[in-house]
Amino acid sequence: MYEKINHSKYTFIYSGVLGTLYMVYGIAEMFYSIGIDLNNFLLFPFWSDPFAGFSLLVVGLVFVYPLISRKTETPEKFAYVYVGGILATILLVTHILVILANYIECYILLSEDFAGWTWWNDFNPAIPLGLLALPTMVLFYRSNVLQGSQKS
């Protein structure tokens, strides 16, 4: 039913590193939204939306929680990895949809507001980080807890 104990250590370490990255980029994006630009250090463009940064920060906290939690039960700790993966995937999908929507505006509707737009304009750390978080979703999918969640 659960991941074996000898795998959990590496899972939590991965989760911790991923969570740290999320937190760093989240805080940086929040700073960016108030005019403090750390872009040169962090590779990816940011949105001028403090809530986008806040979302990254929250996902980071969820991923990091198993390392700092006092819980001794491994299954409960895995819950944070799985939920972190779910949240990361939701943010990943949302950001990709935003890029697709703006692509339609620029290249299909030929909207003047999107003249000169490229996909990099809407790129966000949530995308590469979301891709890095995909292994946690694979872990979640392969765990037995997902079976039996029936469709409504």
Binding site: F51, F54, V59, T94, I108
Partner: peptide, 20 residues
Amino acid sequence: PIFLVFMWTVFQFTFTVAAP
């Protein structure tokens, strides 16, 4: 905070993705 993340995602979906 997780709830606020969901709400922000809802707003992005509702506004930006629906815009075209």
